[in-house]
Nucleic acid binder design. Structure first.
Length: 521
RNA sequence: GGCGCUUUCGUCUAGCGGCUAGGACACAUGCCUCUCACGCAUGGAACACGGGUUCGAUUCCCGUAGGCGCUACCA
C-alpha cells in the first residue's frame, strides 16, 4: 500500500486565530515523524471557511514554527511543486472532483436552506440527513432533473452532499488505536461543497489535497477520529484506496484542573500561555500571552510538548530535538488525553535555562533593570547592567552544580538579585526570617558591628572577614543573619562578607544604619 | 440522547501474563549551612469497579462506572 512511497506528512491549520498549543504538538509530532523517516513535511492552509478568516493568523503560525525550530519542506511560504497550498486558491481543483462524484452518483445536490434544516432538527428529534431521510428533502434525488437545473439557473444556493450507503461497517486502521470500526448508518450525508462561496468543506478538501499532495500519513488530533470513516469512504468513492494514507489520531490536551480540553481561558485563569507567541487580536484588541514572551526557551517548549502524550520509555526526559527525532515512535503514543501540566513546563524551562550561559540573558536583564528604574544616567545604567550580569553569572551559572538557582525564567532573577542594586525599603515584620533574627538586643549588636566595619579601610572580602570573625568569636555574637536583614531585608543572598564587599563600605553602613533605626520589635 | 475513543501515584508516564508495580514533576522530612537556593538522602502516593479466560492477571475478553471527543453549509 504505502510502504514503498516516500513519507510525506502535513500540518494543515485554519487561519482562524493564533495557533493553539495543542496544534503545536500535532505539528511537532508530524515533524518528528517526517524527519525520522527522512520524509517531507508540508504546510497547508485550510481556509475553506471564508467567514472565519482572521488576518495575520497565517503569518503568526509561520513565525511560531520558526521560533520553535520546526521546519517545513514545502507549503505556504515554503514553495514546492504540489501547490497551491492555500485551499482558497484551489477552488477549480475541488470543483473537478466534486463533479466527478456527482457524475458517478456518489454525491447529490441539495437545496435545503439552513433555516429549513434548523426547523427540521427542531421538529424531528435526532434528525440526521442520511439514507433514511434524504428522500424527504429537497435535493437532486427527489426533484426532477429539470427542476434541479432551473433552481441552479435561477441562482438558488445549494450544497453537494456525499451519498453514504447505510449498513456497512467501515474500518479505520489507526496507528495508535488499532482497528476502529463504525457503521456507516450513523454517518450523515456530509456537505462536501457549498455553492455560496464555491469552496469545499474540510472533508472533501482534505481528501483531495492529501491525495494530490501524496500524503502518506495523516497525524492529527483525536477530534477527527469520528469522521475518519467518512474519509475512508471518500477515498473509496474516488478509487484512491491504494494510496490512502495511514491514520494516527493523537490524544487531546486537557485542562490542568477541572474537566474538558485545554482552552484559552485556562491560561488566563491559571497564568500560563496557551499560545506559542503573544497574539494581538485584530478585532477585539485583546492580547493573549505567548510562551516566547513569557521567557520560555523554544527547546523547553518542544521538549515538554513532545513528552505530553508520548514517552520514549527510558528514564531520560531532557531531550534535544535530534534525540526526539531519533526516538520518536507513533505507535507508542498514549491513547488517553493528557492533562496540561504547566508546572512541569516551567521545570523544563529551568533545565534549559541553566544550559545557556548567563551572558545570553543580558538583553532581558537590561529590560528588567530599566523596568525597575535602576538607571539614572547612561553611564550608570551600563555599569549596573555589567555588575548585575557578573553577579548573575556568578550566582546562577552551572559551576559544578553548586550555584544553580531555582529559576524558571530570567525574570525570576530580579527578586533574587535586587538587593545588589536597591536597599531594602522596609523590613517586613511578617517575614519569618526578619522576626527570627532581629531581637531586642540586635540593634545594639549591629551598632557594634557597624562601628567595627567603619574602621576597615580596604573594604574587601578578606579584610572584612579578618575583622568580623574574631569579633564574633570574642563576643559570642552570631551577627550574620541580623546583618543580612539589614542589607537584604530577608533571608536571601550570598555570603555576608561577599555581599558587604560588593556593596561597598558606604552603602553597607548606610543600610545598617537604616535598619538599626527603623526596625523595632 | 446516539456513536466512537479512553481509564496505572495529585500530574506526565514505564510496564506489553509471574515485578517489593519503575522514573519524572509536585509535595513532605532530614543532612549541608551565616539566609535562600543548589546538592545529597529519605518518605508518602497508583493498577476505577464487577465478571470471565488462565496454574497465575495491572497486562487478554465482556460488562458497569468515570473521563474525552464527535454529532454544522467550523475546522
Amino acid at each position: 500500500m504505502t510502504t514503498d512511497r516516500k513519507v510525506r506528512v502535513r500540518f494543515a491549520p485554519s487561519p482562524t486565530g493564533p495557533l493553539h498549543i495543542g496544534g503545536v504538538r500535532t505539528a511537532l509530532y508530524n515533524y518528528l515523524f517526517a524527519r525520522q523517516a527522512g520524509g517531507e513535511l508540508i504546510f497547508r492552509i485550510e481556509d475553506t471557511d471564508s467567514t472565519r478568516f482572521v488576518p495575520g493568523a497565517e503569518e503568526y503560525i509561520i513565525e511560531s514554527f520558526r521560533w520553535l525550530g520546526i521546519e517545513f519542506d514545502e507549503g505556504v511560504s515554503f514553495g514546492g511543486n504540489h501547490g497551491p497550498y492555500r485551499q482558497s486558491e484551489r477552488r477549480d481543483i475541488y470543483k473537478t472532483y466534486v463533479d466527478q462524484l456527482l457524475a458517478a452518483g456518489k454525491a447529490y445536490i441539495a437545496f435545503d436552506t439552513p433555516e429549513e434544516l434548523d426547523n427540521k432538527r427542531k421538529e424531528v428529534e435526532n434528525f440526521q440527513y442520511d439514507a433514511s431521510t434524504r428522500m424527504q428533502m429537497r435535493n437532486s434525488l427527489t426533484l426532477p432533473a429539470s427542476e434541479v437545473e432551473r433552481l441552479i439557473a435561477e441562482g438558488n444556493q445549494y450544497v453537494v452532499r456525499f451519498k453514504i450507503e447505510p449498513g456497512r461497517d467501515v474500518q479505520v486502521d489507526d496507528i495508535i488505536r488499532g482497528m476502529v470500526s463504525i457503521n456507516s448508518s450513523v454517518l450523515d450525508d456530509k456537505v462536501l461543497y457549498k455553492s455560496a462561496d464555491q469552496l469545499p468543506t474540510y472533508h472533501l478538501a482534505n481528501i483531495v489535497d492529501d491525495h494530490l499532495m501524496e500524503v502518506t500519513h495523516v497525524i492529527r488530533g483525536e477530534e477527527w477520529l469520528p469522521s475518519a470513516p467518512l474519509h475512508v469512504l471518500l477515498y473509496e468513492a474516488f478509487g484512491w484506496t491504494d494510496t490512502m494514507p495511514r491514520f494516527a489520531h493523537l490524544p487531546l490536551l486537557l485542562k490542568p484542573v477541572g474537566n474538558g480540553k485545554l482552552s484559552k481561558r485556562d491560561g488566563d485563569k491559571l497564568g500560563f500561555p496557551v499560545f506559542p507567541l503573544e497574539w494581538h487580536d485584530p478585532k477585539t484588541g485583546e492580547v493573549s500571552k505567548g510562551y516566547r514572551e513569557q521567557g520560555y526557551l523554544p527547546e523547553a517548549v518542544v521538549n515538554f510538548l513532545a513528552l505530553l502524550g508520548w514517552n520514549p520509555g527510558g528514564e531520560k526526559e531532557v531531550l534535544t530535538m535530534q534525540e526526539l527525532i531519533q526516538m520518536f515512535d507513533l505507535s507508542k503514543c498514549s491513547k488517553a488525553g493528557a492533562r496540561f501540566d504547566y508546572v512541569k513546563a516551567m521545570w523544563f524551562n529551568h533545565q534549559y535555562l541553566l544550559q545557556h550561559p548567563a551572558m545570553e540573558w543580558t538583553p532581558q536583564l537590561d529590560k528588567i533593570l530599566r523596568a525597575e528604574g535602576i538607571e539614572s544616567t547612561p553611564e550608570r545604567e551600563a555599569q549596573v547592567v555589567e555588575m548585575m550580569k557578573q553577579k548573575v553569572i556568578e550566582y546562577t551559572d552551572n559551576e559544578g552544580n553548586k550555584k544553580k538557582r531555582n529559576i524558571s525564567f530570567v525574570s525570576d532573577l530580579w527578586p533574587l538579585c535586587r538587593f545588589f542594586f536597591t536597599a531594602p525599603q522596609s523590613y517586613d515584620s511578617a517575614d519569618k526570617f526578619v522576626r527570627k533574627n532581629w531581637k531586642a538586643e540586635t540593634a545594639g549588636e549591629m551598632r557594634q558591628l557597624a562601628n567595627l566595619l567603619s574602621t576597615i579601610d580596604n573594604f574587601s572580602v578578606e579584610d572584612i572577614k579578618a575583622k568580623v570573625e574574631p569579633w564574633a568569636e570574642q563576643t559570642g555574637i552570631r551577627p550574620w543573619n541580623a546583618w543580612r536583614v539589614a542589607l537584604v531585608g530577608t533571608g536571601q543572598g550570598p555570603d555576608m562578607y561577599e555581599l558587604s564587599a560588593f556593596l561597598g563600605k558606604e552603602e553597607t553602613l548606610k543600610r545598617m544604619e537604616h535598619a538599626i533605626e527603623s526596625i523595632d520589635c
